[in-house]
């Protein structure tokens, strides 16, 4: 499947990656070739094969409903770029 410039821009927008025109052009080319390689998959008949999400056929273990965590806000916010009064700050969100 060939890749359009618009598709790369759409992926970049969904992934919140700012791209300039040069980068976009390069990625159109790169991604096109990567997807061409990936397209080898299409030649394989997988009719009736169940998708495999995990390499082991294991099932989810459940955790007892207990509060095991204590407050480490100061620790966690030491690596935060912008906090005030315990809140993480972001540019104003308009609803």
């Amino acid at each position: 499947m060939a890749l359009e410039h618009a598709e790369v821009m759409r992926a970049a927008s969904l992934a919140r990656l700012g791209l300039n025109d040069d980068e976009a052009a390069r990625y159109v080319d790169d991604l096109g070739r990567i997807l061409a390689m990936v397209d080898q998959l299409q030649s394989l008949d997988t009719e009736g094969v169940a998708p495999l999400a995990h390499p082991l056929d294991a099932t989810q273990r459940l955790r007892a409903d207990e509060v095991t965590e204590t407050n480490h806000r100061d620790d966690f916010q030491r690596c935060a770029p912008a906090v005030e009064k315990g809140l993480y700050l972001v540019p104003r969100v308009v609803e």
Binding site: V8, A11, L19, E23, I34, L35
Partner: peptide, 12 residues
């Protein structure tokens, strides 16, 4: 970035 873009595209 390349891999994020591929992954985003193939999941879309």
């Amino acid at each position: 970035k390349r891999r994020i873009l591929i992954g985003t595209h193939t999941l879309s």
